[in-house]
Design a protein around this nucleic acid. Structure first.
Lengths: 144, 144
DNA sequence: CGTATTTAGCCTTTTTCGAGAGCAATTTTC
DNA sequence: GAAAATTGCTCTCGAAAAAGGCTAAATACG
């Protein structure tokens, strides 16, 4: 399962993407409207800022805002930022590869093969799920 | 990522499946050959026994053995046993459904749609990955 | 300049995971 | 029936996740 951090991050990002280029949004607004504990949200937004996805402004009229285009932020990146690898096993991860300590022969490991396939399918779906794509899906759903 | 418990469980099950119907196997043998901490493995095997997948015999000549056919034990079931839901969000799980507390409208949630698709693909792959299927894959790999 | 607003950083608490120690219970064998 | 072999059970410990509290720093506005 996703960590709360990652889940909240995605919700906050979608929220900000809906108001892209409309100026800074208050943490407290996001917290209230998305039902995210405020203190927790603060550290999440800070992480997203340090990752170069958001920027912030202090003082009156301040808040957080998206600096990447909603088309360019996808769920795979956000999940990796907060929860690390997406794959189920370290030996099939893309950016965090590590041998399974207990593994005897990676080359002939049938378990690895299965999870390699799972990872590929998963990452493919997540990569094409940008903030823009998610917002589009929501519009389609509410137009029905 | 999989918990160590689930990963070790899968390795132990594949080990036992390779010796299906050849009598009880010692915990210590599995522990050594699969590089799994023995005490940890003990509790894992016990869980698998309580789940009706393994059975055990005490005393000399004792150990653990598979009571389900290797074709009938798949990775989705084992993962759910140890790590709970396979899906990334509680609102798209099959057997453990729960509303996301912070969610505003599940019916129009674009995030949910994405993770619903991921779950479906993932579970499909894991369901068809039985112990027998994994062993077959390993044989194909080592015959190359 | 000073005050209100808002983000930034640090410290504490509670729960769960990974691992191991030690002892108890059960079965076989002699 | 005693001893050896093996599984079964209960604690404990450290690290990480999920919060929440409190104070500092920066900025805007009158």
């Amino acid at each position: 399962m996703l960590s709360k951090k990652a889940k909240y991050a995605i919700n906050a990002l979608v929220h900000l993407a809906k108001q892209y280029e409309k100026g800074p949004i208050l943490i407290s607004d996001i917290s209230e409207q998305e039902n995210i504990p405020q203190k927790f949200l603060e550290s999440i937004l800070l992480d997203l800022k340090n990752a170069g996805i958001l920027s912030s402004k202090k003082g009156r009229g301040g808040g957080y805002y998206l600096i990447k285009a909603p088309e360019e932020v996808n769920l795979a990146d956000v999940m990796r930022l907060f929860d690390g690898p997406i794959a189920f096993l370290p030996c099939v991860t893309y950016k965090y590869y590590e041998r399974c300590e207990e593994c005897i022969d990676e080359a002939t490991c049938g378990i690895r093969q299965v999870f390699y396939e799972v990872r590929n399918e998963t990452v493919e779906i997540l990569k094409r799920s940008s903030l823009a794509a998610i917002i589009k899906k929501e519009q389609l759903l509410s137009d029905q």
